[in-house]
């Protein structure tokens, strides 16, 4: 027997919208043309609520809530855009730019980078936090791909696509705090990873130039993500 899907109505930035009860604020906002910035979220991967760019205000809730994981509720009054949120979002982006090396002019993904695109969209004109610039390694041991940790923003999209879609779980995160790094297998060089299937999905979902194909020069690495919604759709169909 099919259980009926309940429908909820709520407002986002004053606009009345309808939603299925299992939808998130982000999904409903996008359906209705309300843009909420996201970085760690990617359609087809499980949401983790880590980048905090999608934080919204909900009336009656003291905390800010991540739109990508928060379910809609009846009568919810969501504010997705306010001066306070815009300032927080810009600061979070600036913190990312200050954390590692994100000099666009020498990046393979210049012009095709999610981080760069959001920074422009949110009018981030400069970084007012001190740059940290740790010297991190580049692993080019894989036959076809490269990881440059200096460009990684630890969104864990690669970790999730590899685990959830490819089923290999080659990627994971090591260490804590600013010491965190994505690793392959048990911190082996990517080229010697026994679990990596070489499918390249991680490269395609990476928002920045951290993961790229070998042989690409500055601004040449654009990413192809069409496979993700397709694969998820096919899987849902099978369920």
């Amino acid at each position: 027997m099919k259980t009926p899907v309940r429908v909820k109505t709520l407002t986002i930035d004053g606009q009345e919208v309808g939603a299925r009860e299992d939808q998130t604020i982000l999904e409903v906002a996008r359906e209705n043309g309300i843009e909420i910035p996201t970085l760690c979220w990617l359609a087809g991967l499980s949401p983790v609520g880590a980048c905090r760019l999608c934080l919204v205000e909900v009336r009656g809730v003291a905390r800010l809530l991540p739109a990508c994981v928060t379910r809609v509720e009846e009568g919810m009054e969501v504010t997705a855009h306010s001066e306070r949120l815009a300032a927080y979002r810009r600061s979070i982006l600036e913190l990312l730019f200050a954390e590692r090396n994100h000099v666009c002019s020498v990046c393979v993904s210049n012009g095709h980078c999610d981080l760069q695109a959001i920074a422009m969209k949110l009018d981030m004109t400069h970084v007012h936090f001190p740059y940290q610039y740790p010297r991190l390694p580049v692993d080019a041991s894989h036959e076809r791909f490269v990881i440059d940790h200096n460009r990684c923003i630890l969104c864990t999209r690669c970790v999730r696509v590899c685990d959830e879609i490819e089923g290999a779980h080659t990627w994971d995160v090591i260490a804590r705090g600013v010491e965190c790094r994505v690793i392959t297998d048990l911190n082996q060089p990517w080229g010697s990873s026994e679990s990596c299937t070489g499918c390249g999905k991680c490269v395609q979902v990476c928002p920045t130039g951290a993961l790229s194909e070998k042989g690409r020069s500055v601004a040449e690495m654009s990413k192809r993500r069409q496979f993700l919604p397709y694969l998820t759709l096919m899987r849902e169909g099978r369920r």
Binding site: C51, L95, L96, A98, E99, F129, L154, V178
Partner: peptide, 12 residues
């Protein structure tokens, strides 16, 4: 190290 503000904010 999962979320940006805590990871980088506490370091800053």
């Amino acid at each position: 190290g999962k979320c940006v503000p805590c990871r980088t904010g506490t370091a800053q």
